[in-house]
């Protein structure tokens, strides 16, 4: 059975492109596009991997990540964070909040695939 990845991102065309490449790679891709109830989506769908954008409407990606980490069920799911800023401060915040990988936009499709495969292997 295909592994599931939950993509939490609010840009429709990025969702479409990333969904496409991950589906072609054999993933079952589910998406969610706002911050408010992202944690509910995580609990409901119990994905094997989460890709989480930092800048979401309603709630910061860092806060969502903390909620994921605090949850007994989703707490250990690998999380790949996406951000539009490559500042050291953001990287540190992501690491502190418990991200497994951190990727700066714009990224190449090959990098995303590589990161997702690496995280799924762990």
């Amino acid at each position: 059975m295909a592994k599931t990845v939950l993509l939490i991102e609010d840009e429709p065309n990025i969702i479409e492109a990333v969904s496409f490449i991950l589906s072609r790679d054999g993933w079952d891709v589910q998406t969610h596009s706002n911050g408010h109830d992202a944690i509910d989506a995580v609990r409901r769908r119990a994905p094997d991997l989460i890709i989480l954008d930092v800048m979401l409407p309603g709630k910061s990606g860092y806060d969502i990540l903390s909620e994921i980490r605090d949850d007994p069920v989703s707490g250990r799911v690998p999380v790949l964070m996406l951000t539009a800023r490559g500042q050291t401060r953001d990287r540190e915040m992501a690491e502190r909040a418990g991200a497994d990988r951190y990727m700066t936009k714009p990224f190449s499709n090959a990098d995303v695939l590589e990161a997702v495969r690496a995280l799924a292997g762990t």
Partner: peptide, 29 residues
């Protein structure tokens, strides 16, 4: 606005590389 520009660039880059690199992508996609 830099964030918005980067988001647009990210979508374009990802989409363009799908079009350039994926074989047998199908007319609909």
């Amino acid at each position: 606005s830099l964030h918005e520009v980067i988001s647009a660039v990210t979508a374009i880059r990802s989409t363009a590389s799908i079009l350039a690199e994926t074989e047998s992508i199908g007319p609909e996609w």
